[in-house]
């Protein structure tokens, strides 16, 4: 057991201090809500030398609108997002997903950035943000950069974040309207559970015809994925039974799931289709 006996805990007051604190300690980890990290530490999967608590950094807390885009600070709790009037009226998929994330206690602690950085392919908030073309702002020792969310994850638990980089802000640019968006998952327990498969859909309709569609699937690939074939197919079409059947087939085909303790690959693939179809209809009905 070469593992450290103790873990240092630091509470920086600014993003700069946080980056510095991370740089000093090679096995340091950012902690916000801790709802994934603390479980991982208790189970012995991660052994940070230092925890850098970002929840006291004022610039990382809260939700603001700026030129039609929505900016969510990294340390903003899921519960705060759930109750934000703009989120509620403009981005219903985020509300769908946030309400399913853990239970109330988890929603009071967990942050949106934490959910994204944990990089679980089953993460609730990833799909909805992906279909809204969200981007993340990152600060590190070599400065700031902005990454489209679709390029953020590289595999289960893996992101493009460099050592000592911090995700500071999630930006929803507003280029895709979120009004007709929705999220659902297939699960086993109706109380606290994790997605066996999830789907998020954002759609823009004009006189019944699809102007733009975004379909995401969770827990069917190493990262949350977009079903671009179905998105392209939907362009200009009405949501007839035939079109929905085709979307279901395309989503099922796009899924490349594994079999694990939660579900078989066969079931996950079938549910990917079922959910994509179902969530597309649900999103469209919100018009």
């Amino acid at each position: 057991m070469a593992e450290p006996k103790t873990t240092e805990y630091v509470v920086p007051q600014s993003v700069g201090e946080a980056v510095e604190a991370l740089s000093e300690s090679p096995k340091a980890r950012v902690i916000a809500g801790g709802t994934d990290l603390m479980v991982g530490m208790r189970e012995g999967h991660v052994h940070p030398t230092r925890l850098v608590d970002i929840t006291r950094i004022q610039e990382l807390i809260g939700i603001s609108t700026q030129n039609g885009s929505l900016r969510i600070g990294a340390a903003t709790k899921i519960d705060e997002i759930l109750h934000h009037p703009t989120v509620r009226s403009e981005y219903p998929a985020l509300v769908d997903a946030g309400q399913l994330l853990g239970g109330w206690q988890i929603q009071n602690m967990a942050t949106l950035a934490g959910n994204l950085c944990n990089a679980s392919p089953a993460a609730e908030m990833s799909g909805p943000l992906l279909v809204l073309d969200a981007e993340v702002e990152v600060m590190g020792p070599s400065g700031e950069r902005r990454i489209p969310l679709g390029e953020f994850w590289t595999g289960p638990g893996k992101t493009v974040l460099e050592p000592a980089e911090i995700l500071t802000t999630i930006v929803i640019p507003g280029k895709v309207s979120g009004r007709l968006s929705a999220y659902q998952r297939v699960d086993i327990r109706h109380s606290v559970d994790i997605a066996l498969v999830s789907s998020a859909v954002g759609v823009e309709l004009s006189e019944g015809k699809v102007q733009l569609a975004r379909i995401a699937l969770g827990a069917v690939a190493p990262t949350v994925i977009r079903v671009t074939e179905a998105e392209a197919y939907l362009q200009g079409r009405t949501l007839s039974e035939e079109v929905l059947d085709k979307v279901e087939d395309l989503a099922e085909a796009a899924a490349v799931p594994i079999t694990d303790v939660r579900a078989s690959a066969e079931y996950r693939s079938a549910m990917a289709g079922v959910l994509a179809r179902r969530v597309l209809l649900l999103a469209a009905e919100r018009g």
Partner: peptide
Amino acid sequence: VLVKDGLVTNPNFLDYRIPGFQD
């Protein structure tokens, strides 16, 4: 309780699902 080759694969309350109020 799921067992694969003698190993319990769901030894936690996320994957061993006791009911909650909504169930």
